[in-house]
Write a protein that binds this DNA or RNA. Structure first.
Lengths: 239, 239
DNA sequence: ATGACTTCTTGATGCAAATCAAACGCTGTC
DNA sequence: GACAGCGTTTGATTTGCATCAAGAAGTCAT
């Protein structure tokens, strides 16, 4: 399912360096960082980068591809806790108990940079800028999850889906993609799990948006026709 | 609303040192930590330790008292994102953008240790054990929020309240309190906000548990009569 | 104590989304 | 090109919780 590629990899000439861990580092510091990425690892679509319960030793930075993370309850219910794309860091859930708390599954063929957490910590002690950045990444994840809690506890189906689409668009835009078009890498069921609704409701809500001329849905291809209206749905809810 | 007390404070003889930041440090290291807590700060019931938008400069460790944290959406909806008790660390949400992302409000008169984040980072670079511990605290918060997402997205009202009570009991127990009795510091509305349900539903669910002989409810005083049944409700849900 | 206010409980009704069900459209395989 | 299998759409019905409403209980200030 997975293959290790051991040719030399370097943050300093990675095209994601403005999004990923090296953000804000000087050229010298980035050279130091190059040693942090031990190897790269490919994960095929459907493959697990790690599974819940696996021993935690490394963080991963996504180079290419798209992932979902999900936790599974004792009685087998699955909850998608996030979708991750290029430049984002995975594995933070494992630090607290030295084993992973969720599954990380590739939604398309992917490649990640393997960053042994010991190296990250060692380097963090030498490069204050890196230390700060690691803290920011963890804090960002906490804040993101706060937002998801708000969404799950307070919003209605249409608001949730609007919030979801806007979030994806914004992150894709930061990576150079269009603001008015996207391809969903996940199924309706996975979207529903993340948003706390059933796949039928996701599908119905897409159809509703489509009827209202807000988006155009062709399977996994979404075209945004009325970005403003989407924003209005997202935060005007109770009018 | 708040007063600063500037007498010397020390982690090394704090009765919370087994729960709080110093966990796992040697005596020498803990001595170094003593310098980290700049001051202590008292917050009266209802007072804000910090508010959303405030500049972030310090973390706080709760010495006494009980807090809630909540985010507020643009259209004014409030979402309680957590309840914090003695030994727990607050303020992590502020690191990512150098300003706080939520309100921290005391639910009873409280006292916190003020730990300037710069100090925490400086010391973390000198004491690997502290560095690791800071990482673990942030990771724990991420994992906790994963659990809340599961709860909000997948569980029914009874399960949510059971999960909530069990979580409080477990944390209070770790602080030496009874496993079969607790006093709720928050209102039904605040519980509801945290659990994604209305205060009436919280009240009704308490009444239901009471009728079923699982708990005894006297206002904010809860006595657990059948701990096992509570656990069954929590994770057997779909039977 | 008295009255004002907040919090909590309980009942009646309504609704958004879940559930159940069936058909349709892709994708890939032999 | 036919078939199987998965993902998606759409419709009919049910349901858990929200909403609306009113009163009870507790808290606080005077």
């Amino acid at each position: 399912m997975q293959a290790e590629s051991s040719f030399k990899v370097a943050c300093s000439n990675c095209n994601l360096r403005e999004l990923c861990l090296p953000i804000g580092l000087s050229t010298d510091e980035m050279k130091q960082l190059d040693g942090m990425v031990a190897t790269r690892k490919k994960v095929k679509q459907g493959g697990h980068l790690y599974s819940s319960g696996d021993p935690f030793t490394t963080l991963y930075a996504i180079r290419t591809g798209f992932f979902k993370t999900c936790v599974v309850s004792e009685d087998g219910r699955e909850q998608v806790t996030g979708f991750q794309m290029a430049g984002e860091i995975m594995g933070l859930d494992g630090i607290v108990s030295d084993k992973h708390n969720c599954h990380a599954i590739a939604l398309e063929d992917a490649e990640v940079c393997v960053m042994p957490f010991n190296h990250v910590e060692d380097l963090s002690r030498e490069i204050p800028m890196l230390q700060r950045h690691v803290h920011k990444i963890m804090s960002r994840e906490i804040v993101r999850e706060n937002g998801v809690m708000m969404l799950l506890a307070n919003m209605r189906a249409e608001e949730r889906l609007a919030a979801f689409l806007l979030n994806l668009l914004q992150r894709l835009h930061a990576r150079g993609y269009s603001k008015s078009e996207l391809i969903l890498r996940m199924t309706r069921e996975e979207i529903g799990s993340y948003l706390g609704m059933k796949l039928e409701t996701v599908s119905r809500t897409f159809s509703k948006f489509s009827e209202d001329g807000i988006i155009e849905v062709k399977q996994k291809n979404i075209r945004i026709l009325d970005h403003e209206k989407l924003k209005t749905i997202f935060n005007a809810s109770i009018c």
